[in-house]
C-alpha cells in the first residue's frame, strides 16, 4: 500500500515538475541534434545547454530565416540579403538592402562558424548569437519591424502555431523562442570542408598546386596574424588601413566603445568562402579581391590606430596571383550547396 502511494505521489511530483518547466525548453517528442565539426577545433563559444538543438527547432529557425513576414512590409527576409551561394553574404551588393528600397550603411557579413564567434556585426556591438537578428529585424533601413508587432504577427499565423508547438511543445510565440530557433538554424551553418581542409586533413589524392602552396606561404607570412587559422579570423576588431570614407562617416568600433583608440576598427572577416562573397570591406567598396590586395600594397591610410601587422605591407604581382589561387582553396562548395540550408517555400 505504502509503495503504491509512493509511486502515485512521485508521479504527481513529476507532473508538477513538468508543468513548472513547461514553455522553457524543447517540447516533448523532439529529436535532439548533435552538430559535428573537426576534433581539432576549440569548444564553441555558444552555450548549447541554454538552447538544446532539435530537428524541430532548427526547422522553425530555417522557416523564420526565409520568411519575409519578419519585415514590416513582408518584402525582405533574412535570406534576402544572406544568400547561401554567397556563403550567406549578399552577392554583388556593397550595402545591405531593406524594406521600401531603403539602403543600409554596411555590407552584409557572411554567415558560418558563428558558434565560435564571441561578438557580431562589423563593429562587434552585438554580444550574443541569440540576439543578433534583433538588429537587422528592427533597423529602420533593413527590416524595420518592431519586435512586439512581429510577435503578434507570428502568433496569428497557423503555420507558426504548428512550428512553435513542434519545437517547444506549445503554440506560444515569444521573442525568446523565436530568437533561439533562429540561433539553432544559424548554429548548424558550419563550413570546414574546403580543399584547404582536405589538404590539412591529408586526405588521399588532395594536395595544393605549386601556385596554391606559394599563396599559402604568402598568407602565412602576411595575412595569418589577423586571419588566423583555422577560422581565418581571430575574431578581433582591427584597423586594416582602409581609408576613411567621408560620405559614409563610419568609424567602426569607436561608436560602440566611445574610445578613440578604436577609430576605424572593424571585425576581421573570415577568409573562408571569400571568393564567393564579394564585395569586400565593411562598406563593400571593393568588388574584386585584387582591389583588396592593392589596398594593402599601396592604398592604406596612415593613422595611429592602423594595425602594426598591416603597416607597410607589400604584395608583389606574383604574391597577389598566388594568394588568389590559395584563397580559391577556401571555398567550401559542400557548404554552399548543402540542401539543409537552402531556401524553404513560404506560401502565405
Amino acid at each position: 500500500m505504502n509503495q503504491k502511494a509512493t509511486y502515485v505521489i512521485m508521479a504527481f511530483c513529476l507532473f508538477l515538475l513538468g508543468i513548472s518547466l513547461r514553455g522553457r525548453g524543447p517540447g516533448p517528442g523532439v529529436t535532439y541534434v548533435t552538430l559535428k565539426w573537426p576534433d581539432s577545433l576549440p569548444k564553441p563559444v555558444y552555450d548549447f545547454s541554454k538552447n538544446p538543438l532539435t530537428k524541430e527547432g532548427i526547422a522553425l529557425g530555417r522557416y523564420l530565416f526565409y520568411d519575409p513576414k519578419l519585415s514590416r512590409d513582408s518584402s525582405v527576409s533574412c535570406g534576402f540579403c544572406h544568400q547561401q551561394f554567397a556563403a550567406f553574404g549578399h552577392f554583388d551588393h556593397p550595402l545591405a538592402h531593406g524594406v521600401y528600397g531603403r539602403m543600409g550603411t554596411r555590407s552584409v557579413p557572411t554567415l558560418f562558424n558563428l558558434i565560435w564567434q564571441k561578438d557580431f556585426m562589423w563593429d562587434g556591438g552585438v554580444n550574443h548569437l541569440d540576439i543578433q537578428p534583433m538588429s537587422p529585424i528592427t533597423a529602420e533601413n533593413e527590416m524595420d519591424m518592431p519586435l512586439n508587432e512581429l510577435i503578434e504577427r507570428l502568433k496569428c499565423n497557423e503555420k507558426y502555431q504548428q512550428l512553435f508547438k513542434a519545437a517547444y511543445g506549445t503554440e506560444e510565440v515569444t521573442s525568446q523562442r523565436m530568437f533561439k530557433a533562429l540561433a539553432q538554424f544559424m548554429a548548424t551553418m558550419i563550413s570546414f570542408d574546403s580543399k584547404y581542409d582536405s589538404v590539412k586533413r591529408k586526405e588521399p589524392g588532395v594536395a595544393f598546386t605549386a601556385e596554391e602552396a606559394g599563396g599559402y606561404s604568402t598568407f602565412q607570412q602576411k595575412c595569418a596574424g589577423c586571419h588566423k587559422e583555422p577560422f581565418f579570423t581571430d575574431f578581433s576588431a582591427r584597423n586594416n588601413g582602409l581609408p576613411y570614407s567621408p560620405n559614409m562617416n563610419d568609424m567602426g568600433r569607436m561608436r560602440i566603445t566611445n574610445n578613440t583608440g578604436d577609430y576605424m576598427k572593424f571585425k576581421v572577416p573570415s577568409l573562408r568562402n571569400i571568393l564567393v562573397s564579394a564585395p569586400y570591406m565593411h562598406d563593400g567598396r571593393f568588388f574584386d579581391i585584387f582591389q583588396v590586395f592593392a589596398m594593402y600594397d599601396h592604398g592604406q591610410e596612415k593613422g595611429s590606430t592602423v594595425d602594426p601587422l598591416v603597416r607597410g605591407m607589400q604584395l608583389s604581382p606574383k604574391e597577389q596571383r598566388q594568394l588568389y589561387m590559395f584563397l580559391n582553396t577556401l571555398t567550401d562548395t559542400h557548404f554552399l550547396k548543402n540542401k539543409e540550408f537552402s531556401e524553404v517555400m513560404i506560401d502565405d
Binding site: M121, V126, H128, M134, T138, A139, L147, N148, I151
Partner: peptide
C-alpha cells in the same frame, strides 16, 4: 523580453 523596448539592438 526585448519587446518592451528596453534593449539596445546595435550595442547589446
Amino acid at each position: 523580453d526585448p519587446i518592451y523596448g528596453m534593449f539596445w539592438t546595435w550595442n547589446s
